[in-house]
């Protein structure tokens, strides 16, 4: 049984095609990493699932319901949350208000705020501060907390570690481990291939808008990965 299945997803920015016939699936509780070079279409893929980029002629099924064609605001309440690339915190809102925005759609199942503060104790001390006054790592925690508070079945994270110190990245992955232990399905986009292979059950490698390689994280050969990542020229 798949929680998420995507078949032949094509996505466009105007006339520019960013994704070509992408097939993808995720089982409940699975952790999937998406790797690929800059511009490969990783963020576009996550945004297409979240309804922020509309695909054409595709079918996306989540929890046995078709969600392609739904708007982003309709998709959250189905149980999909995205931590967007670059965090995208609301600059004019406080930390707490940012977190509460994550619970806007489904207040019924939403986590209480205290849960988020137990997960990220630092944030409680800075609850009333403007979100942008925090350090990069703390901002990333707000972005993750804002996604978690909706109590998603599927959590998608786009380049969590970008620009963060190794220690902070380590902490953030530790948090993700507890999230995964609760049975939440995870899709993470990660530039650090070693990190991705170590954390995920399965990996998809994107190249120029197509899936160039997929397999179980432990079974992929490094030379296959680098060919799929950089293209044929890189493998030579």
């Amino acid at each position: 049984m798949n929680l998420l299945s995507v078949s032949k997803l094509n996505a466009y920015y105007g006339d520019f095609q960013a994704l070509f016939d992408v097939d993808f699936h995720a089982h409940p509780g699975e952790v999937i990493a998406i790797i690929g070079a800059n511009g490969a279409g990783k963020s576009t893929f996550l945004n297409a699932i979240a309804g922020n980029v509309t695909g054409r002629g595709n079918s996306i099924t989540f929890a046995e319901e078709a969600i392609s064609g739904l708007r982003s605001w309709q998709i959250v309440s189905r149980g999909i949350a995205l931590v967007p690339e670059g965090r995208r915190l609301f600059s004019s809102l406080t930390v707490e208000e940012n977190l509460l925005m994550g619970a806007y759609a489904n207040t019924k199942d939403a986590w209480p705020l205290t849960h988020i503060y137990e997960t990220f104790p630092q944030l409680k001390l800075k609850a009333k501060q403007s979100a942008l006054s925090l350090s990069g790592g703390e901002q990333q925690m707000v972005a993750i907390g804002r996604a978690l508070i909706s109590n998603p079945l599927l959590l998608m994270c786009d380049e969590l570690s970008l620009g963060l110190a190794p220690m902070v990245v380590h902490d953030i992955y530790e948090t993700l481990t507890t999230v995964r232990e609760r049975g939440v399905t995870l899709i993470i986009v990660e530039q650090n291939v070693r990190q991705a292979l170590a954390f995920a059950d399965r990996v998809y490698c994107f190249q120029e808008g197509r899936v160039s390689l997929t397999g179980r994280a432990g079974e992929l050969k490094p030379e296959d990965v680098s060919r799929a990542y950089f293209g044929l020229a890189g493998a030579a």
Partner: peptide
């Protein structure tokens, strides 16, 4: 109010507010 918070969030970042479930 929740409405006001969502209005300010939408004003700051329309597409991210959509991701939060706000019908902008």
């Amino acid at each position: 109010t929740k409405l006001g918070r969502a209005l300010r969030a939408t004003s700051a970042d329309l597409s991210t507010a959509g991701l939060m479930g706000v019908n902008t």
